[in-house]
Every structure is written in structure tokens, then in C-alpha cells.
């Protein structure tokens, strides 16, 4: 009896949870479906499922606006900024986790508080500096900005992960004669791989989707997918199949990455703040 009741309960919960999940996922699903329709079918919801499917929208988008170049830029910006941020953040997080001073907590707070500063407070000077140094619309310039933007979060996350590693192991490596560089490279980093992977993943997502600085500081050469999509705001926004195809292409890489690295993603999305 009890068993039957619990199975029935489980089925009810399953139906309910799937419904809620599908409702939340719907806008993405709808976008993907629409991208495989003709423009005419796309706006006619009543007959949406009774008409044919096509990849026409994709070929139009591809031929008109060089998707590959935007995507390349997105990849380079996301990976580049993440890589440099990690190189700077790992030693910092090590120091704060394993050689803390009296001011370490204040320092962490201060770093996080730099995230509190609205980008608009820095927009004008950065724009002018970029203009004067010829950094506008360059990959190097945007990588630097994205790196600085996410550095506090990366340091914070790595710090929380490093805190879980027993200090005795690092001390053992010191007894074994490892220098700081070797201690970080051979002992701490390999041990912290899960945490670093989560940090990396979250940072790639944040950098990929960053849409303030990339919109303000790029136009063409260094423009990532955020710009690619923004160019559809009008009047192409009226062409839903093409809009959907472009959108699908812009979000697919991150969705696929998230799909394959679910565990790291879940861990990363909690910013290391909740265990």
C-alpha cells in the first residue's frame, strides 16, 4: 500500500516537475524550433506544427552576416580573458587561503566590492582611453576588460575551493623541497582541478554573455556574438526564422558546453558560495 502510494506520488511530482521545467525552457525550445521554419510559417503559430521544416534561415544568416567571425571572436574573448584571469587569480587565491594575514578578509571584501562599481562609472574614461590608444574594437582590449571584470569573482571562487584543501598537504610539499611555483603547479592546481574547472566554466559563460562592454567597445573586428545578435534588433527582428537561427547559433555553444559539463556547471553556478 505505502509503496503504491509513494509511486503514485512520484508520478504526480514527475508530471508536475516536467511541466514546470518545460515552461521555463520553452522560450529556448521555441527559438530552436522557429529557426527551422520559413519566415512565413514562423509567424503563423496556428499552423506551426503542420508545415514543413527547413534550414533555409541558417544559410541566409550565414551568408549575410559572417557568423563564423563573430563566433571566433566570442571564443577568443571568453577563453583569453578566462585564461589570463586564472593565471593571475591562482597565486592570489593561494595566498589568501594558505598564507592569510590580518587583512585578508578585508581584501576579499574589497575585491568583491569592485564588482559593485557600476560599469557606467568607468565607461567614459575607458572608452576615451581605448580610443586614444587605438584599442577600440581590438581583441586585446576587450580581453583585458573582461579579465578585470571577472577577476574578483574568480579569485573569490578559487579562494572558497582552496579553503577546502588541507594546508598540511601543501606543507608536506614544502618539506619535500618544492618552491612556490612548483607547489602551485604540481600540488595545488592538480588537487583543485574540479574547483578550477567550475570556475573556468562559469567565467567562460559570463564572458560569453557579457553585453555591456562588448556592445560599447566593439563594432566589427573584435565584435563577438552579442553584437551579432544586437544587429538583429531591427528591422531584421521582424524576420523570426532568421532571428531564431542567429539566436540558436549564438547560444548553442554555451548550452552544449553546459550540457556536457553539468556537474562543473552546477558547482560553478553557485559561485562556490554554497556547499
Amino acid at each position: 500500500m505505502a509503496r503504491n502510494a509513494s509511486i503514485r506520488r512520484k508520478l504526480v511530482v514527475t508530471a508536475f516537475a516536467w511541466t514546470v521545467g518545460l515552461v521555463i525552457f520553452f522560450p529556448i525550445l521555441w527559438t530552436v524550433l522557429t529557426s527551422f521554419k520559413t519566415e512565413g510559417d514562423a509567424i503563423n503559430i496556428a499552423s506551426f506544427f503542420s508545415t514543413g521544416w527547413t534550414t533555409e534561415a541558417y544559410s541566409v544568416v550565414q551568408s549575410r552576416s559572417n557568423y563564423v567571425q563573430f563566433a571566433m571572436n566570442s571564443v577568443i574573448l571568453a577563453l583569453g580573458s578566462t585564461f589570463f584571469a586564472l593565471v593571475i587569480a591562482i597565486p592570489s587565491a593561494w595566498a589568501m587561503a594558505f598564507a592569510p594575514g590580518k587583512r585578508t578578509k578585508d581584501l576579499l571584501m574589497w575585491m568583491l566590492s569592485t564588482k559593485m562599481m557600476p560599469p557606467v562609472g568607468a565607461l567614459i574614461p575607458i572608452y576615451l582611453i581605448f580610443r586614444d590608444f587605438g584599442l577600440l574594437d581590438t581583441r586585446g582590449g576587450i580581453i583585458t576588460v573582461l579579465m578585470l571584470l571577472n577577476l574578483p569573482i574568480i579569485i573569490w571562487m578559487l579562494y572558497t575551493y582552496f579553503k577546502e584543501i588541507p594546508g598540511e598537504i601543501l606543507e608536506a610539499s614544502r618539506m619535500d623541497g618544492a618552491s612556490l611555483g612548483k607547489e602551485l603547479l604540481y600540488v595545488l592546481t592538480p588537487m583543485a582541478i574540479p574547483g578550477i574547472a567550475s570556475t573556468l566554466l562559469l567565467n567562460i559563460i559570463l564572458a560569453w554573455n557579457e553585453a555591456f562592454w562588448t556592445l560599447a567597445l566593439t563594432t566589427k573586428d573584435a565584435a563577438p556574438l552579442t553584437q551579432f545578435i544586437a544587429s538583429y534588433s531591427s528591422p531584421e527582428g521582424l524576420f523570426w526564422a532568421k532571428l531564431s537561427a542567429a539566436s540558436t547559433m549564438a547560444i548553442a555553444p554555451i548550452l552544449v558546453l553546459g550540457w556536457f559539463a553539468q556537474k562543473q556547471l552546477v558547482r560553478g553556478l553557485t559561485f562556490g558560495a554554497v556547499k
Binding site: 516537475a17 521555463i24 522560450p27 527559438t31 554573455n209 552579442t226 532571428l243 549564438a250 547560444i251 556547471l265
Partner: peptide, 24 residues
């Protein structure tokens, strides 16, 4: 279901804006 629920967080703000404004 969990990954379906997480997915919106992975969507670029510009994309979500356009999709919501136009198609929804």
C-alpha cells in the same frame, strides 16, 4: 529537468531580449 531549468541562465542577454520581445 534540472538542466532545462538552468538553461535560461546560459542564454546571452541580447538573445533573450530579442526572443522575448519579438517571438513571445
Amino acid at each position: 529537468v534540472r538542466i532545462m531549468m538552468i538553461a535560461p541562465f546560459l542564454v546571452m542577454p541580447t538573445v533573450s531580449a530579442l526572443v522575448w520581445q519579438n517571438m513571445l
